[in-house]
Structure formats: C-alpha cells, structure tokens
Design a protein around this nucleic acid. Structure first.
Length: 551
RNA sequence: UGGGGUGUCGCCAAGCGGUAAGGCACCGGACUUUGACUCCGGUAUUCGCAGGUUCGAAUCCUGCCACCCCAGCCA
C-alpha cells in the first residue's frame, strides 16, 4: 500500500542521501502527539509518513507523548491515541513520554545555566510580552538577564522546590532579544505550574519544560535521525538546533518540516474539534461526521483506505487543501473490492406481484460480490409483496429513466422481471402500492424478444429487517469553514439525516457491529455500535456510490 | 513595512538545464442483472508575473506579485 509507483517525496530523498553518504545507518523517526485530544486525519498523514518511512527503510519509529503541559492533557487521550495508531495498522518500536525525561531535562537546563546560556527571569507574563518587542521592532533585554550563575542555579532549584508562585518566574534561554526570529528572543524554557496532577508524573513536579526545550532533547535521547514536523515549526528550527548545540548530548536529529493536511468541508484544528465535541455540535469525538480517526472508524472507513489516501496526497512543503473527493475515492476503492453486496430499501414503496401465489416463498441466491466468486453467495427470499425504493418507480418517465414505470418492465435484482400494471393510492392521492405481474421465465436469464434495461433492488415485505439508517453529508457547508468569521456558523444543519423506516434483506439481520456492506445502488454502510429503539440495528453510511446519472 | 516559507491543469502532485509523469475530479465511448466496478479515449504549447543568462529554462539569475507561518510562561 505504500504507493509503489509514487515518486519519492522530498523527505525520502533526504533520507536516501543520508543513507548514501553514511550519515546514518538506520533511520529513526517518532510520532509525537500531545495527549490533549483525539487524533484526526491530519495526524494520520504524519503517522503514515513517520511509520511508513521506517517500514520502507527498515528503521524504527517511536510513539512519544509530548506531555509537557498537564493543564491540557488527560490519561484518557493517551489511551485513545494508542488505539488509533494501532488501528491504523502501526506498531511503535518504543513507547515514550516526554515526561519520563523530566529529570534529564532538568539537568540540561542546569547545564545551560552553568554556561551562562539560561537565566531565571522575574518578569511577569505581561512584562515579558512588553519586553519582547514586535515583528518589526527588536525586544529589550530583561533586567534579570545578567544574573550570576550561582544565583540562577539557586533560583532555578527553588523554582523546582515550589518556593515561587505560578507566573512569578521562568527559566529563559539567553539568546538574542533583537533577533528577527521571535523564537530566539530569550524563549521560556520552564514555567511554574502548581496544583496540577500530571497524568504520568503526578505531583512530582511544579515546573514544566516548554516544547522548544523538550522536543529536541527528547528526540536526541531516543536517537531520532529525522524529526518530522509541520511547517509552523520551521521558525523553531534554529531554537531546536540551538538547544542541542549547547548541551552535552551526543546526538543531533535533523528537523524537517512538511505541510499539514487541510481537507475541504471540515476543520482540523484540535481546538475546533474539541469545541465541536464540548458544545455538543456532534455526538462525540467518534461522531461519524468527525474527521477524527475514531470518527472515521465508526463511520466505517478502513485503515487501508486512510493509509492509501495519505500516500496519494503526497508530502510537500506547499500549503494545500485536499478535496473530500480524494478521501472518498480511497474508501470507495477499498470497499468496492471488499464489501459484500446486500439489498436495502431506504424509502419503502410496496410492490405486490399479483400473479405470485399468496404466502409462497421462494429461496433465491445472490452473489456477495459481482466479480469475486470466492466471496460466495447468500440466501434471498422472494415473496408476493416486496419493498422497492420510491425513487425506483414513476408513473411515467422519459427513456433516460431506466427503472420501473407504469406499464414497463424492470428486473428485481437477483430475481425476476416484473411489469407494473397499476398503482393504488390513499385518500391523499399518494401512491401506496404498485401492482405488478412477474415473468416466471426470467430468473437468471433474459426474457425473449425484449430487453429489460433497468435493475432495481428490493426486500421481501414479510422477511424485512427493520433498521435505522444514518445518512451523512459534509459537516460544514463551505469548503473552508470559518474563512470569514466563526466556523460554527458554517456548520451544515443537514449533515446527519436519520432514516428510521429502512428495510433490509433478511441476511442483514445477522450483521455484526463494524461490518461493512455495499447496499447495492445506494451506498456503503457499516453497522453501528449502538442500536436504535426496539433493538433495531443502525447502519451508518460510509460513502455513497459514485453516481453518474444525477437524476 | 522584520524574519521564515510557498507558488506546475478545478484539487493533490512529479519534474532537480534538454523540450510538462501520475492520481482525484470532469467529458466522451465500451461493458454491465448495481445509472456501481472495470475498460478505452479526451482534457496545461504551458509551469504566479516581468525581464535576463543559455543552442535550449518549470528548472539558473534579477525584480515584482500573491498566499501561509511567527509577537503563549501552548504544542
């Protein structure tokens, strides 16, 4: 699945060169999520890149939780993230937590202080901001910038011992307050945070290292060779290098940035996804409309399709927004080959076959896949009354409409050809029944002297399995939610359509949770984990079938 | 208006000085007991723009333009 014919992306080209030059014998990467939310399709791009690259080069990839901000993180997320990575089909070489390095990190901070490259700053957050300058004006040096090493050492030790309140002091790198790169204007290395219970370290620490200090060191400790991250960290690379260049650590991974994934009609930021969940705009992180791995999984997407999608979109440094059609194509491709075919009627209209013996049931067989006999067949039951979709019948229509028309014929999929003779209406004049005649000579063969172009699906009325079907549309109604204003205003009010009166062919009564099918001529569906009222199964629409008719 | 990036078909994306891959989408046509799948065929004289170098440029140089990121004690 790793795209044999796709040309190598720029990162693989760098790796090729590093291997060829002997800079590295073996590649080591890492996927470093912060456990403050669920993984989404954008993370999948990074996962497929990091884990995929080491599969291709026989290297190693670690899963490392970047858990340096206990205020936002939860143990629950670290569990979910591991589940998602595994579900995507990957196993990490080593499982790490940046928090496990807190001791070493502290030591390296001390080293920087001893070298005069870090100092304890007493400025308040507001003052720090004021001193930092702006994009066009240099910052001013903190009045605490030139404290002596011993004083800094003492202060830092007391910070760790909990002697100072939150926000009162920070440990800062001593770099250059006039740097045009804001990240180099004496960035904070440690901040004080009391009263938090870290999911891994509990209350052992009251000072926590910042990302810019933690990340390069964590990478180096693990012997990472290529530290892949997204474009917004590009400006941080000089700091990443500065940290490693100034401490005693014999490893200096290369940070390489690539463009993050943007998908049309959805949002990818954890902040926004969290908001959708917290404010109840969706049912949860695994709502089938969410671009989260959990949501896609519940929706019925396969790991194979997601990996294929990630390989298809490529890896570059150019900002891009991928069309939803790209993702849909990937899942359709996988499901077309693997999903057993079934028949289900979403908008039932009764068809009565007047020349069929009352109460007579005939067992028919339908192939599970039209092109793969190995997938076998399943039993179908033909009865005098069957459900067909309201859209598959019209009293009159032009020749482009190849379904059932009054006076015309159509084949019942996997069954006989029937002719519509008359319609029955209710008091409101709405058609409630179509009376037909079937041709007993047409099972498995074409009728003599005429051609029947249309084929429609059906479900036997007395054997129908009643179910709830959930149809999904894009979560947002515009390609770039929030582009002009609040993204919530762009939510698509019709993203979920619940169909309570769907009827399914008998065999679907045994569908297992998570099982995927193609409901022929409709869409691909997946049995949901929850049932609807009355114990009826719920089926989630994974993706529609391609429709080139449009009628 | 400081710094860092990016601009190749509607959307992704190859290309790395020798005369524009591929995928998605789209449009034709074939096949079809899924208007699905599959299969054929079509779709950039042109690479953000303008100059320049060269026998030759999307690829090199110069200058513009557009868009993205950075002023968290978030990651």
């Amino acid at each position: 699945m790793s795209a044999e014919n796709t040309p190598k992306n720029f990162i693989c080209q760098i790796i090729d060169a590093d291997l060829a030059s002997g800079k590295h014998q073996r590649i080591v990467t890492r996927f470093p999520p912060e456990p403050n939310g669920y993984l989404h399709i954008g993370h999948a791009k990074s996962i497929v890149l990091n884990f995929g690259v080491v599969e291709d080069y026989a290297g190693r990839c670690n899963l490392r939780f970047d858990d340096t901000n206990p205020a936002k993180e939860e143990a629950h997320f670290v569990e979910a993230i591991q589940e998602d990575v595994r579900w995507l089909g990957y196993e990490w070489s080593e499982l790490h937590f940046a928090s496990k390095y807190f001791g070493q990190l502290y030591g390296f901070a001390v080293e920087l202080i001893e070298k005069g490259l870090a100092y304890v700053c007493d400025l308040s957050p507001e003052e720090v901001r004021a001193y930092r300058g702006t994009l066009t004006e240099p910052g001013r040096e903190s009045p605490w910038r030139n404290r002596g090493v011993e004083e800094n050492l003492d202060l830092f030790r007391r910070m760790r011992e909990g002697k100072f309140p939150d926000g009162s002091r920070t440990l800062r790198a001593r770099i250059d307050m006039a740097s045009p790169n804001m990240n180099l204007r004496d960035p904070a290395l440690y901040r004080i945070r009391h009263g938090l219970i870290h999911h891994q370290t509990g209350d052992a620490w009251c000072i926590y290292p910042m990302y810019d200090f933690t990340h390069p060191i964590s990478d180096a400790i693990e012997g990472v060779t290529h530290s892949l991250c997204t474009l917004e960290f590009e400006d941080h690379r000089p700091l990443y290098d500065w940290v490693l260049d100034n401490i005693s650590i014999g490893c200096h991974p290369q940070q390489i940035e690539f463009a993050r994934l943007n998908l049309e009609y959805t949002v990818m930021s954890k902040r926004k996804l969290t908001q959708l969940v917290d404010e109840g705009h969706v049912s949860g992180w695994d709502d089938p409309r969410m671009p989260t791995i959990a949501g896609l999984r519940r929706r019925g997407y396969t790991p194979e399709a997601i990996r294929d999608f990630c390989n298809r979109i490529g890896v570059t440094r150019a900002d891009s927004t991928v069309e939803m059609g790209m993702l849909e194509s990937a899942i359709r491709g996988d499901l077309d080959a693997c999903a057993p075919r079934r028949m289900a009627v979403l908008q039932p209209l009764k068809l009565v076959i007047v020349n069929w013996t009352e109460d007579h049931e005939e067992i028919l067989r339908g192939p599970n896949h039209p092109k793969n006999e190995d997938m076998g067949t399943r039993e179908l039951v033909m009865t005098r009354e069957v459900w067909i979709d309201r859209d598959d019948f019209r009293e009159e229509a032009n020749k482009k409409y190849k379904r059932l028309v009054l006076g015309g014929e159509v084949r019942l999929r996997n069954g006989y050809v029937v002719r519509a003779d008359e319609v029955v209406r209710d008091e409101q004049g709405e058609i409630v029944e179509v009376r037909c005649t079937y041709d007993p000579e047409t099972l498995g063969r074409n009728p003599e002297g005429r051609k029947v172009r249309g084929v429609i699906h059906w479900v036997p009325v007395p054997r129908a399995v009643h179910a709830q079907v959930r149809l999904y549309d894009r979560l947002f109604r515009v390609p770039q939610p929030g582009r002009d204003g609040n993204f919530l205003a762009d939510l698509n009010p019709d993203s979920l359509r619940v169909i309570d009166g769907a009827v399914l062919e008998p065999s679907l009564g045994e569908a297992a949770v998570g099982e995927r099918f193609q409901f022929e001529r409709e869409s691909y569906f997946c049995r949901d984990i929850e049932d609807a009222a009355g114990g009826r199964p719920v089926f989630n629409q994974i993706v529609s079938l391609r429709d080139s008719w449009g009628g």
